[in-house]
Simulated scan of single mutants.
Amino acid sequence: MHLIPPTVLILASGRGERFKASGGSVHKLQALLAGKPVLQHTLDAVRASGLPWHVEDVGHPGMGDSIAAAVRHTVSAAGWLVLPGDLPLVQPATLQAMAQVLLDRRAVVAWPELAGERGHPVAFGRDCLPDLLALQGEKGAAPVVRKWAEQGRGLAVPVHDEGVVTDIDTVDALARAEALWRQRHAAG
C-alpha cells in the first residue's frame, strides 16, 4: 500500500514589515539571494522534495489566518508541512524527512530541531485538522503544537540543516543566508 504524503503549505502572504524596517527596498520574498528571489529558492526546494504543495499568497491578517486558509485549500491532504516562504535554504531531504515522520505515524505534530533550536517546516497530521482550521491571528500554529506536545503526540526531529532556522526577516539575515548559501555551494 502506497501512503499519500502530506502537503507542504508555503506561507507567502505576510507583509514583511521587519525586513522593510531593516532597510530592505523590496518585500523579503522578492529580495535576491544568489541572484534569485528568496521565495523562488524555497519553491525550488519544495519542488525538489517531490511532495505535493500549495502556496498561500493571499493577504491575511495574521499567520494563523494564513495557515487556516491554506489548510482549507488542501483539506483532503494526508497532513501538512507548514513552511514559511522566507526559509530559502531548507533542504529537500529535510522536507522529505519531516513528511516521513507523519507517514510513520510516530507523531501527530513534529518539528525539526537544529542544535536545540526549533525550526520549520512543522508537520501536522490529519488529527490536527480542526485545530488548524480554527487558527487566526498572529500566533501561527504554536497553540496547536503545544496542545499535541502536551498530550505526548509531538516529536522534535534532530536535523543537520541550517535552512530550518534561517529565515529572512531582516537585511542582515539575508546577508547571513547569502554567506551560508555560498559556503554550501563552495563545498559542492
Rank of each mutant, 00 (worst) to 15 (best):
A149L: 03
L103F: 03
W148Q: 01
A142Q: 06
C128S: 15
L133N: 05
A141N: 00
L114N: 10
A77E: 08
K147E: 09
G137R: 00
R126V: 14
Q136Y: 12
G79Q: 06
V71L: 14
K147Q: 13
H73M: 05
S76M: 05
A141L: 00
V75H: 12
Q136L: 00
D131M: 10
G116C: 01
A142V: 01
V75Y: 10
V109T: 12
F124C: 07
V145T: 04
L89T: 04
F124K: 02
G116P: 09
Q91D: 14
C128P: 11
K139F: 04
H73C: 11
A99D: 05
L135P: 12
P92R: 01
V75N: 07
A123N: 04
L133V: 10
A115P: 00
R126F: 08
L102M: 06
P112E: 05
V108P: 01
P121D: 12
P88S: 04
G125M: 11
C128Q: 03
L95Y: 05
Q136A: 13
L135N: 01
P121M: 13
G119I: 04
G85N: 09
W148G: 04
P92Y: 00
E113C: 15
V90L: 05
A78M: 10
V82A: 10
A70Y: 07
K147M: 08
M98E: 00
G137N: 06
D104G: 05
L129R: 15
D86Y: 04
L114T: 05
D104N: 15
R126W: 07
R106P: 02
L83K: 11
T74A: 10
A141P: 02
L114D: 12
G140Y: 03
Q136T: 11
L114E: 07
T74H: 08
E138S: 06
L133Y: 09
L135Q: 10
A134E: 10
L81Q: 14
W148A: 07
G125F: 02
L129Y: 12
V144F: 02
A68I: 06
P92W: 06
L83C: 10
R126T: 15
G79H: 10
Q91E: 15
V108K: 11
C128E: 02
T94M: 01
L83E: 12
A110C: 12
V90I: 15
Q96V: 14
A134K: 07
K139T: 09
A107V: 03
D104I: 02
G116Q: 10
V90K: 07
